[in-house]
Write a protein that binds this DNA or RNA. Structure first.
Lengths: 192, 192
DNA sequence: GTCTATACGTCGATAGAC
DNA sequence: GTCTATCGACGTATAGAC
């Protein structure tokens, strides 16, 4: 008798958990990005997610694990085609798009985890992809400089906001950065 | 009679304080640079300086004041001459020289003080100096990009260390960065 | 599944002994 | 001038009630 009505709502145990977990993760991402690792508190994340602090611990076990889950980046892609233009496309997206997930890493990798192994693996893959698109013999150094430059511009625009880079249009920035990438990515190629 | 011998050691009150204070400041700079603001503790700084935690408070009053003193940069200079070459000289120094003081700011400004007013003032002056060396009408944006690029490369070399930029020779980096600065600083000028 | 209560450590800062 | 002792607040993490 009572079992019939109890079985009706099938998405209440395994699925409500997913929903709550996703809400916590979103709140964690936003908080880590805004405050960095140390200043982010479990209580703050729980409050932002509308749940209790104990529940966050119940789901993720520790603050470290919560950060690791929040900082997991979806994918770093580099469009095919002319190397310089591909890099400019990647830069433009990071100038405009909501960079919440990226900012979690950018900010927290500097404050917290020099041992954030997961991030370093992703970064290495990203560097390889750039290096593969760069023809010269010192591809590794060129790729490293390109990555550093992109990181610097993104940090300035979204975190530091010290200069005109913070408010300028993406078009203007991309236009000024084109010769930069053409030079570093090997301007003598990439026309076919 | 007793006054004669008592006046002999003249550098014991006002000068030993300076020495201890300098030792604390050096320890604070190193610790802030290594750990960032939040993870740095008064106790840790005191221990590294070989003194007691209470003494650090006695001298500096608060952790915030200690950080402010430790993060005070000596000066940001931009050599005169061709804009691009001046920027390269500045970059080279930051690639090689002991960047302790700079790293305090670089790391901590990202983890702690979006309101670190003192640093923002210094950064504005630095941007003005770059902008003055850049002829184009969009000098502010160009100066911002140049500063962002330098910051990105310095962060990668000294803090992140994810790529070949960390280990490459300053010569190789400067050589690859020359066309970058020539492009952004207005390559059509600065030949005379 | 969600929340309350709390144990346990560490922090910045203060007061006062030597 | 330097250090010891301690306060009050807040952090993560745990145990267990509902």
């Amino acid at each position: 008798m009572s079992r019939v009505s109890a079985e009706k709502p099938r998405r209440t145990r395994a699925d409500q958990r997913r929903e709550t977990e996703a809400r916590i993760l979103a709140a964690a991402r936003a908080t880590f990005a805004e405050l960095g690792y140390e200043r982010t508190t479990i209580r703050g994340v729980a409050s932002a997610a509308g749940v209790n602090a104990g529940l966050v611990m119940h789901y993720f076990g520790s603050k470290e694990e919560l950060f690791s889950r929040a900082a997991r980046l979806p994918e770093d892609d580099l469009p095919a085609g002319h190397p310089a233009e591909a890099l400019l496309t990647s830069l433009r997206r990071r100038l405009d798009d909501e960079p919440v997930a990226s900012l979690v890493v950018l900010r927290s990798v500097l404050t917290h985890a020099e041992a954030s192994g997961e991030f370093r693996v992703a970064a290495a893959a990203w560097l390889d992809r750039i290096g593969a698109a760069v023809p010269a013999g010192d591809a590794a150094l060129r790729a490293g400089l390109i990555s550093s430059i992109i990181t610097g511009v993104v940090i300035e625009r979204h975190l530091l906001k010290l200069s005109a880079v913070a408010d300028a249009s993406a078009d203007d920035i991309v236009a000024l950065m084109r010769p930069v990438f053409e030079s570093l990515a090997g301007e003598g190629r990439g026309t076919g």
